[in-house]
C-alpha cells in the first residue's frame, strides 16, 4: 500500500515536455557529431566509421588558415579584454556609488544590449574609412572589435568574484604591515585569480564563436573558422563542416567544464 505522497511540485505533463526538450536539444548536435565520422560523401546515409573528413579538413589550406586566425584573434582579444576588464572591475567594485558609475556600467555592458548586426554595421562603416585612410588591412581590426564585445563577458565573472571577496582579508593584510601594492599582489590578486581565469575563458569562447561582427569587419582572405563555415553553407553541405563543428564543439565543452569547476562555489 506504499502509495507515494502527494507531490506538491508536480505539474501534469511537465516532465514529459522537459524530457522532449532535452532530446530535441541534443539530437541535432549528436547527429552532427556522428555524421562527422561518416565514411561516405553523403550527410544522410551512414557508410561506416572513418576519420576522412577530419583528415580532409586538416589538409585544407583554407581551414588551416582560418583556424590559425581564429586562435590568434581569440587569444589576443581575450587577453586585451581580460586585462582592461580586470582593471575596470577593481575600479568599480567594492566602493560606494560614485559619480559616473552608471555610465561606466552601461558602457561596459553595451555590447550585450546592442544587436550584433547593428554593431557589425557600425564597425563596417568606421573601419572601412580607416582602412581607406591608412591603407592598412591587418587582423588588428578584428582583434579590437572582438576585444570590445568580449569585455562584458570577462568583466562579469571578475566582478562577481571581487564582490564575493571578504574585505577583512585585505584589512588583515594591511594590519600585518603589507603595503597597498603588496596587499594587492599577495592577497587581492591571488583571490581574484579564479575570476580572471574564468573571465578570460569566457572571452576566448565568445571570440572564437563570433560570426556576425567578423563577417562584416574582415577584409578579403581574413576568414575565421565560423565565417569560413558560413561561407560553406551557401554550397552543398559537406561532412567537412561537420568535422570542424565537432572540434569546435569539443573545445567549447572542455572550456565550459573548466569554467564551471573554477567558479563553483565551495560548500
Amino acid at each position: 500500500m506504499a502509495n507515494p505522497s502527494f507531490e506538491v511540485a508536480r505539474l501534469p505533463g511537465f516532465r514529459f515536455i522537459a524530457m522532449a526538450v532535452f532530446v530535441v536539444l541534443y539530437l541535432p548536435i549528436i547527429t552532427l557529431v556522428v555524421y562527422s565520422f561518416n565514411a561516405g560523401q553523403s550527410v544522410a546515409l551512414w557508410e561506416g566509421f572513418s576519420l576522412t573528413w577530419y583528415h580532409s579538413a586538416w589538409q585544407n589550406e583554407a581551414v588551416k588558415g582560418a583556424t590559425f586566425r581564429s586562435l590568434i584573434i581569440a587569444a589576443s582579444a581575450s587577453g586585451i579584454a581580460t586585462t582592461v576588464a580586470t582593471m575596470a572591475a577593481l575600479g568599480t567594485t567594492r566602493r560606494k556609488a560614485f559619480k559616473g558609475q552608471t555610465f561606466i556600467y552601461v558602457m561596459i555592458n553595451q555590447p550585450l544590449m546592442v544587436p550584433e548586426i547593428v554593431t557589425a554595421v557600425a564597425l563596417l562603416i568606421f573601419f572601412a574609412s580607416i582602412k581607406v585612410a591608412t591603407g592598412y588591412n591587418g587582423l588588428i581590426y578584428l582583434i579590437i572589435a572582438h576585444a570590445a564585445f568580449c569585455i562584458p563577458f570577462a568583466y562579469l565573472p571578475i566582478r562577481a568574484r571581487l564582490e564575493g571577496m571578504d574585505l577583512t582579508l585585505e584589512t588583515a593584510a594591511a594590519d600585518l604591515y603589507a603595503s597597498h601594492w603588496l596587499t594587492f599582489r599577495r592577497v587581492t590578486l591571488p583571490l581574484m585569480l579564479p575570476g580572471i581565469i574564468a573571465g578570460a575563458m569566457l572571452a576566448f569562447v565568445i571570440s572564437l564563436d563570433d560570426v556576425v561582427i567578423t563577417e562584416f569587419v574582415k577584409s578579403g582572405g581574413q576568414d575565421t573558422l565560423p565565417t569560413y563555415m558560413l561561407g560553406q553553407m551557401r554550397r552543398a553541405v559537406t561532412p567537412e563542416v561537420n568535422a570542424i563543428s565537432s572540434v569546435l564543439l569539443a573545445l567549447t565543452v572542455v572550456m565550459l567544464t573548466a569554467f564551471f569547476l573554477l567558479t563553483r562555489k565551495k560548500d
Binding site: 506504499a2 505522497s5 506538491v8
Partner: peptide, 20 residues
C-alpha cells in the same frame, strides 16, 4: 494535512478514511 501519505496505516477525519 495530506502532504504526505503514510507508508502504512490510516488517517481518519470524522470517522472517514482520508488517507488517499
Amino acid at each position: 494535512a495530506g502532504f504526505e501519505t503514510p507508508t502504512s496505516g490510516q488517517i481518519l477525519l470524522d470517522g472517514a478514511d482520508i488517507t488517499q
